[in-house]
């Protein structure tokens, strides 16, 4: 269970989250909202990348401020730009990089990397330079690189923004089939069809919280109202 208790966050003078209280326990949670609504900050709070200016975030009993390292072992994070996330020059090396401090032998690392690459359709690219992959393959690599550590929760911040429709669907299918709990921040409402719970953010607050269809309808209405204002 992830709990946000009276969480507020500011960047300088600008308040990006205002007094948010949430309990997140569902397997599939979506977060939507306009640009600047605070959804990316909310996502970053969940694995301790950002610690709140006020309030606290607790992941399965661990405070993200005090136990950041342990939280990050539980909660993996995927960004919208895989180029910023891929660290090593080749595909297999990048996946192996995530395991460097897991106390595994070289043979165990090799086996886990091979299994992970196979699972995400990258087995044939193990020794390829990462920068030569397509955008879709890069995002799959970014996902594989964090999933190889077998986290319990995966947070994705707009992982399909830079992808075409086919690659976007591929990532969506992958996310749908994961055994992990997933928190997905996205502008692509199609991705959230059928999801258990969707939060709608507006000006740093959660303004709607419910099943996907209900929240998305609220979000559409919110956007059409703000367009006519």
């Amino acid at each position: 269970m992830i709990r946000l208790e009276a969480v507020s966050h500011r960047y300088g003078d600008r308040a990006v989250l205002r007094d948010v209280d949430l309990s997140l326990g569902e397997d599939r949670i979506g977060v939507v909202g306009a640009n600047g609504s605070g959804k990316s900050t909310l996502a970053r709070l969940l694995n301790g990348l950002v610690v709140p200016s006020a309030g606290r975030v607790v992941v399965d009993g661990l405070d993200t401020d005090r136990d950041g390292a342990r939280v990050r072992r539980k909660v993996a994070f995927v960004f919208s730009d895989p180029d910023a996330q891929i660290v090593m020059p080749t595909v297999a090396e990048d996946v192996a990089f995530s395991l460097r401090r897991h106390g595994l032998t070289r043979a165990e690392v090799t086996e886990r990397v091979a299994n992970t690459l196979g699972r995400y359709g990258l087995a044939g690219h193990a020794d390829h330079p990462a920068h030569l992959l397509s955008s879709g393959q890069k995002q799959l690599l970014a996902l594989a690189a964090v999933l190889v550590t077998e986290p319990e929760i995966l947070v994705c911040d707009e992982p399909t923004t830079l992808l075409d429709l086919r690659n976007s669907r591929q990532v969506a299918d992958l996310l749908a089939g994961l055994p992990q709990r997933v928190v997905l921040v996205t502008h692509d409402l199609e991705l959230l069809r059928g999801w258990q719970r969707v939060l709608v953010m507006d000006e740093g607050r959660v303004v709607a919280d419910g099943p996907a269809e209900q929240s998305i309808a609220h979000y559409r209405e919110l956007m059409s109202v703000s367009r006519t204002c």
Binding site: R44, N47, L49, G68, A69, R72, R73, A76, F77, F79, D81, D83, A84, Q85, V87, F97, S98, R101, A145, V146
Partner: peptide
């Protein structure tokens, strides 16, 4: 900006932990 995002990604992957 890219360097900034790489820094975030490294932190998310637990490099500083």
């Amino acid at each position: 900006r890219h360097a900034d995002r790489v820094g975030d990604a490294l932190a998310a992957r637990g490099v500083d932990d």
